[in-house]
Design a binder for these strands. Structure first.
Lengths: 248, 248
DNA sequence: CGCCTAAAAATTGTTTACAATATAGTTTTC
DNA sequence: GAAAACTATATTGTAAACAATTTTTAGGCG
């Protein structure tokens, strides 16, 4: 307990805290977490690679406290594994985990699409088209980091239309868990092109208020990544005991 | 300093890193986060109350580093709000947030129940009955902390039957976000009793493999808590602009 | 009397140093 | 010569001190 000050809750009449909406900087540690995430996404850091606090502190020109924080955050996100007194390493996902995550993702994303209020405002459609153009441009130029982020923005805007903040947040959370495995599908140019065309079709369905078509597109859009990852995994480690779908 | 000679338990001559799946202790910081969570759940800490690092360090007999970590974790969970350079405080949820969270919870929990493989093994049913008895006993004795945890265990076991680890984890995550508001419903003894009876009915439905009934129970079981919270909230702050359901 | 300004206190954010623990390498012993 | 014990090194975990920021308090001025 504090020795002198116990003025925990100050009931100030004329000072609404709501005004303190200072959306400050993302707290340094979050930035570092993001950068490490990026490295994992792009395959610059591969599973089982160790993440040493001091190295990262030097690299990001900060102190170990923030790096530590970032590593704990990434652990909770499921992107790295941390063993007490031993350190952190990039975590590899098993095919089973990937299947389970994608099964839940599919349910949530379909749910989001199901509750989007139709018709969608023209301004929202235009916004999606703009994001789609950015995505296509990044693909054309082969800028993988941009492909990654523009794709993220497109889906963020799409699911954002559903209006339920908690649902959006949860969808993002699950997407983050499998950031790392996208590089497997994105290695093939035809996968990128298919994603691009899917986005176009989604916009078309949105504009025509064809919900069933949009749902089907959403489901189809999620298939290639886990499949590519699992194929690569089984080719690398053997395909023993890989059957069993978690959701019917 | 190395006075211990037999402590060295390195039974690994080479370097089989794969075997190092030692699930160690919950890392101190996680424990602190849990304790604070508990305080919030039981109403011992109320919204807008400040959480000061040094105070908590003294209270939990540890250093600020761990407390800091815990506060960041709780922030990400949505239980506390942190403003840079100003500190952390217990976060109060708006009715809208509560509605949105419960809407997604309902979808996820129904999903889990929908994919439970039927029939359920007798041993699983017995396990649920045992947990139900613990819950009932805790209610009878008025041990609120025990009520909380035994309820948690019951639902954990129930949804655990669905077999999808990611889904279970996500359900837990959303449940955690609204831990704090349960105290509103649990203040009424009749709410506790109704929860108890719901659990009994769920077990009955499980045993009889009546899925539709189980789904309906799951949905009904989620209703009282947010309703009680929102009533209390509107009574306290006025009910301006509270309409609008996030999910149809 | 209220409001603005400036010192003081309280709190968070950062840096550094140190201790505990695990890993790797070397020596000893049978 | 191989396995166990020891030493050395690397890395994480903890503690304390320092700096930066914010909040409170007090005082002066209109």
């Amino acid at each position: 307990m504090a020795a002198k000050s116990l003025k925990q809750v100050k009931a100030r009449p004329a000072k609404p805290r709501e005004a303190a909406t200072t959306s400050r900087e993302p707290a340094a540690a979050a930035l570092i977490a993001k950068r490490i995430e990026e490295d994992i996404v792009l395959g610059r850091r591969h599973p089982r690679e160790r993440l040493i606090e001091q190295d990262l502190s030097d690299l990001f020109r900060t102190h170990r406290g923030d790096v530590r924080l970032a590593l704990f955050e990434l652990e909770k996100k499921g992107l790295v594994e941390r063993i007490p007194n031993r350190g952190a390493m990039v975590r590899g996902l098993t095919p089973l985990e990937v299947r389970e995550i994608y099964a839940v993702r599919e349910e949530l994303e379909v749910l989001a699409v199901r509750i989007i209020p139709f018709p969608v405002a023209a301004s929202d459609i235009e916004k999606l088209e703009e994001l789609q153009r950015q995505h296509a441009a990044a693909i054309a130029k082969g800028e993988m980091l941009n492909v990654f982020y523009s794709n993220l923005r497109f889906h963020g805007a799409l699911f954002g239309l559903c209006g339920n903040a908690c649902l959006i947040e949860t969808i993002d959370l699950l997407a983050q868990k499998v950031y790392g495995i996208r590089s497997y599908a994105n290695a093939f140019p035809e996968s990128l092109d298919r994603a691009r065309r899917d986005h176009l079709d989604m916009i078309k369905a949105l504009r025509a208020s064809r919900r069933d078509e949009l749902i089907e597109l959403t489901q189809r859009h999620l298939k290639p990544s886990p499949e590519a990852y699992i194929r690569a995994y089984e080719q690398r480690f053997g395909s023993a005991g890989a059957g069993g779908l978690p959701l019917p």
